[in-house]
Nucleic acid binder design. Structure first.
Lengths: 342, 342
DNA sequence: TTTAGCACTCATAATCATAGAGTGCTAATA
DNA sequence: TATTAGCACTCTATGATTATGAGTGCTAAA
């Protein structure tokens, strides 16, 4: 359909626009070294590219700007993956050099570093917990009225919740309860826990322990944690540097979305395995209309557990960002697999 | 020094400017109902107020704008506290209606609600932990190589950290260690813990346990948590609605500061007891040059443990915000005192 | 002491002209 | 037949010019 020359022109237009954020004219193009033909030829090809919907004009006599269809074609067919340079590789590896033991820190650091490397906004979603298995349960009384329920998972994640003790609970009841729970629930995954608690355990408790209800419900609530561990967003203010967000209304729209976790979960809550690029309206979100989102999943062993993402303007440095995100996601997979499967 | 009439004029100028964000002229003022004298009189008084530094002119023939000195005088002497209306009281009380047991949620909700009520940015700093006392220590082995150290504090706060087990650690050593730590450290406050660990405990461990070092250092690091529990910022995007931050450079400056915890800690890390108002340059921070900060402390019992703050433009609704912040801080004090001291 | 009157200042908005980047089309060229 | 030079045309961005009007300071009268 498109001639090689037209593809070259499309590619150069997009490359230039990504760099300059300015509409690209035939004259500018003809001066590029990779382009050997005249501006008139370019104009003819541009007219055709426009007719086919790959580029558009902001107004009658201006240069051309890529359309979403154009970006899509560019990402799918014209992109040559950019090799990361030494510094970039080093920087990403530095995330994992010291203790990976604090997952929260790793997630946070990943988001920060990724946003610094790209100058866009980075989102890192910590591993899902739903397949984690209970390692140990514990109740620690704080005083006459309150106690704290603790669940330790096999990945080392700890959930806890304060709850009110029924009046005159005696210590031995608490101990009995903890014993029953540990006997029955160690090894059970978080996703099965709630059911198990209310189907198998509740009868046992009723038989052996008076006033088990509030302790049980504290455990049940502790268990009902959001399925993802932690969410970090790095480089929110990088958005301010993008010329397309000079417009305060656009800015407000996207900022509002980023500032509430819910919006972000909707955006990258369940991304497919591997790299994905969503351009503008493909994101099905009014706030994201002028943005592109590049996501990558990471895994523990074979199982996908989390995701990282870069949010930037449609005019994004796709090839560089894709390489970075890809690299980091593999690094995270390696590090986490290493940590949990050995 | 200032006549009553001048004070009235100053007050009305500031009130009007807070509402409109526009320089206030003598004509506008003379039409206010509380002002009974002519615009010429006002002009004379304004000239004097300007000479004394309470107001200033953006340019020769414009209306007047309050200076920082003017705001300061206004806050110190001209403010009549604004009664909260029913809805505001209800909304704030709603923070504490259901389970206060999850402190993190309470802090988060406070920040959100405060920002919604004020339309400014709200910051809530969770309670300090340094005077919390150890309630229980625990080590849970996850597999041959890793274990998790857990510290439960008397307020119900739980800290935990993954650490690497020395090769061939046997279970009984871990149990011995846990016993020693619990015997010696329960009741010790977090601020004394580090010292105690390395002065008293280390000798005991050396005598009874082989390979105690890494377990000890895991505990020590778990203990070295930031002294404040949690920090939440609500309504960051409210800044975008303030006309003074149309300027992208100003916006970037303040956004950058808000987006890093460190900047916020520097700002409200140690605020005095009670309400404090810092106006513009009084904050000693370039980013805050065009902002005011209203802070209030809250306590458990008699002891101040945390702070809440509102960050807005210098042109802030001081009286309303002060009332809101005051009210919320007392509510928090009540709720927390009730929770921990009963 | 207060106020009316008036000349003066300056920011803002509106209008207009110009330059220049870019286009599409036509006709000449390889 | 495909490419390119040439040219008229379009539209934005820029700057200059000009009104408009809100607001001031000063003077003189009340």
């Amino acid at each position: 359909m498109l001639t090689d020359r037209q593809l070259l022109i499309l590619q150069v237009i997009i490359d230039d626009f990504i760099r300059s954020a300015q509409p690209v004219g035939s004259r500018t193009l003809s001066e590029k070294e990779e382009i050997t033909f005249s501006s008139a030829t370019i104009r003819n090809d541009m007219a055709e590219l426009e007719e086919l919907g790959y580029i558009e004009k902001p107004h009658t006599s201006s240069g051309r700007v890529p359309s979403e269809k154009g970006y899509r074609y560019y990402v799918d067919h014209l992109l040559h993956p950019k090799e990361l340079n030494h510094r970039e590789v080093e920087t990403i590896n530095s995330i994992f050099v010291d203790r990976i033991y604090e997952l929260e820190k790793v997630v946070q650091k990943s988001a920060r570093i990724l946003s610094e490397l790209t100058n866009y906004t980075a989102i890192v979603l910590g591993p899902e917990l739903k397949d984690n298995k209970v390692k140990k349960l514990q109740i620690v009384p704080l005083d006459k009225n309150k106690a704290i329920a603790i669940i330790v998972l096999d990945t080392g994640h700890v959930e806890n919740r304060l709850f009110k003790l029924p009046k005159q609970t005696n210590i031995s009841d608490i101990e009995k309860m903890v014993n029953i729970l540990n006997e029955r629930l160690v090894g059970v995954s978080l996703s099965e826990l709630h059911d198990k608690l209310y189907k198998e355990i509740v009868g046992l408790l009723r038989r052996h322990i008076s006033n088990y209800e509030s302790m049980l419900s504290a455990f049940a609530e502790t268990v009902d944690v959001p399925t993802n561990e932690k969410l970090f967003v790095g480089g929110k203010t990088n958005i301010l540097n993008q010329p397309e967000f000079r417009d305060l209304d656009k800015l407000r729209l996207i900022m509002n979305m980023i500032d509430q976790e819910e919006g972000i979960y909707r955006l990258i809550g369940n991304v497919p395995t591997g790299i994905q690029v969503k351009i503008g309206k493909e994101n099905k979100s009014a706030a994201m209309e002028h943005c592109s989102l590049i996501t990558a999943s990471y895994s523990v062993g074979e199982e996908q557990v989390g995701a990282i993402a870069i949010l930037g303007p449609k005019r994004m440095e796709y090839s560089r960002v894709i390489s970075l995100v890809d690299f980091l996601s593999h690094d995270m997979t390696k590090a986490l697999t290493n940590l949990y499967k050995s």
